[in-house]
Design a protein around this nucleic acid. Structure first.
Length: 260
DNA sequence: ATGCCGGGCGAAGCCCGA
């Protein structure tokens, strides 16, 4: 089962690119972030025509996540628990059926957190605390799950072209990285890193300053696997090809393959 | 380069992203 994550930066602006990639890569599941539309405006029919079931948790203008799955989805649950006042659409969880054990899949759009001196950074760290708490609960089920998304956290200096330039940024601040490590240290596996030790592989390149042709990127899109899912991990990679297309997203898809 | 692109909103120019 191939499971992918991609911050598409507006599904309306990216529909053609998304369709092309789905046809080429043929993932069983795609978690999308920053769809930037309300549920009613999500192109459900266009994606159903490609053979996908669709689950959407959108909002107007900003954020928004969605999950496409060729297999049936159950227990579709929008929203990260832990703060009833949080109205930002950044989390969607489903259970995807499989030939063996089903896989719980979450689409995650973790807050950016900049600027670091202010409420946005506090919101990011609090959101990560909620994700850690929720993950603790999921782990008690002892099942396969994949937390897939735009984490807006650079794990290490190997995951950024110029660590110095990013050291004061919310994506690379020690506080953000510490929370990511706390999450990983619960027993999760970074699917890409499990298959790739090489440094300087990126999932995001800024639109500005020729970041893509100069390969000035960062790795911030991750698939984090529970122990039973990690036992089923066959392969994982970043597919940078869509960044070279016309009207690209600034992020590219990251995927993993699990035994069915 | 704390805004160089790019998208939403809405119909100009601001907000936001990472």
């Amino acid at each position: 089962m191939k499971i992918a994550t991609w911050n598409v930066n507006s599904i309306k602006a990216r529909l053609d690119n998304v369709r092309d990639w789905l046809n080429m890569a043929e993932p069983d599941v795609l978690c999308m972030q920053e769809i930037k539309c309300i549920d009613e405006n999500f192109p459900v029919e266009a994606l159903e025509d490609l053979g996908y079931n669709v689950a959407v948790h959108g909002q107007k203008t900003y954020n928004g996540v969605a999950i496409l799955s060729k297999r049936p989805m159950e227990d579709v649950t929008p929203g990260l628990p832990g703060d009833k006042l949080d109205d930002q659409a950044r989390y969607l969880e489903v259970v995807v059926s499989s030939n063996s054990a089903p896989v719980r899949v979450a689409a995650i759009y973790l807050p950016n957190g900049n600027p670091v001196h202010g409420p946005k950074f506090a919101y990011k760290l609090n959101w990560m605390d909620r994700l850690i708490q929720h993950t603790r609960k999921l782990l008690t089920y002892e099942e396969s799950f994949v937390l897939a998304g735009d984490y807006n956290v650079i794990p290490s200096a190997d995951d950024v072209h110029d660590p110095k330039k990013w050291e004061a940024d919310a994506l690379f601040k020690p506080e953000s990285r510490a929370k990511l490590y706390t999450l990983l240290n619960l027993g999760l596996t970074d699917a890409f890193r499990a298959h790739h030790g090489e440094p300087h592989r990126y999932s995001f390149w800024n639109y500005q300053a020729g970041a893509w042709p100069k390969d000035h990127g960062i790795r911030i899109d991750h698939l984090l696997l529970s122990p039973p899912a990690a036992d089923r991990l066959i392969d994982a990679d970043i597919d940078a090809e869509p960044r070279d297309r016309e009207k690209p997203s600034d992020h590219v898809p990251v995927w993993c393959k699990l035994e069915d």
